[in-house]
């Protein structure tokens, strides 16, 4: 064999998952006290922290402010120890700037910016460990942080990655090893309930005929992630609410 198979004969991947299984997701809202909203998410080994500040006055002058909507400012930063080989600079390089722009695009689709004219909402994402699906984890963490900050959203925005194994079988939630082994990776950020796609990005290539099924897998992944995030939010709400008595602990 020249390279490891993405999917073995009995249908298991390198980390023991099946093709349609997501990695274990653990998350927490309200990790820090200083930001208005913060969240931490672990998707497999990928660990991401998100912090939200706002809405507050636009920093850096009124020229950037918009009269009818809030501006959303995102910053994507990877800790220098997050990748296997140590990164020299945490942010400011092309890739981080591109990720920040993509993140902003995904969040603008769901934040009700028309409610906060002349304001700014800052979303800062810090990647502690990158093990594939980094952008997806960032979007999910940002959603949770925005909910924690109490910023009105149209609905959850979730992101998921999908790939094609053995040129035939679609897989969901790609880890770093699977990315590197050469499989094409499709990243989709979507609004799961209204079934709208916010951002779609792909590396490598595969034939157009395969696109519908890979896309379907990714969207299904987004829906599953939304269920997990929703449960986490409700648990957090019960925790916070029961301490002040306005939610009855079951």
């Amino acid at each position: 064999m020249s390279r490891k198979e993405l999917l073995s004969k009995i249908g298991l991947r390198a980390d023991g998952r099946r093709a349609q299984e997501l990695r274990r997701i653990r998350c927490k809202l309200g990790v820090f006290t200083e930001p208005d909203g913060s969240a931490y998410i672990e998707q497999g080994l990928t660990k991401v922290l998100a912090a939200v500040y706002g809405p507050h006055q636009v920093r850096g002058g009124r020229s950037k402010a918009q009269y009818d909507a809030a501006i959303v400012n995102c910053q994507f930063s990877m800790a220098v120890f997050s990748t296997g080989e140590r990164k020299r600079r945490p942010r400011g390089d092309r890739k981080s700037t591109e990720m920040s722009i993509h993140l902003k695009q995904a969040l603008m689709a769901t934040i009700k910016t028309e409610l906060y004219p002349w304001s700014q909402i800052d979303v800062y994402v810090e990647v502690l460990h990158a093990d594939g699906g980094v952008y997806a984890a960032c979007v999910n963490a940002s959603t949770l942080a925005l909910i924690d900050a109490g910023i009105p959203l149209k609905e959850y925005v979730c992101a998921c990655t999908a790939s094609l194994a053995n040129n035939d079988i679609p897989m969901v939630d790609i880890s770093y090893q699977e990315e590197v082994l050469g499989g094409p990776t499709l990243t989709v950020a979507a609004l799961p309930m209204s079934e709208k796609i916010v951002l779609m990005e792909m590396t490598q290539r595969f034939h157009l005929d395969h696109l519908p099924k890979v896309l379907k897998e990714a969207l299904r992944g987004c829906k599953d992630i939304k269920v997990i995030l929703d449960e986490a939010v409700r648990n957090h709400l019960v925790n916070v609410g029961s301490s002040s008595g306005w939610v009855k602990n079951k």
Partner: peptide, 16 residues
């Protein structure tokens, strides 16, 4: 030693 001030701490730490 390398110190990185994350923007999570305060918006003033954004960028450089």
């Amino acid at each position: 030693f390398f110190v990185d001030c994350s923007a999570n701490a305060t918006p003033d730490f954004e960028g450089r």
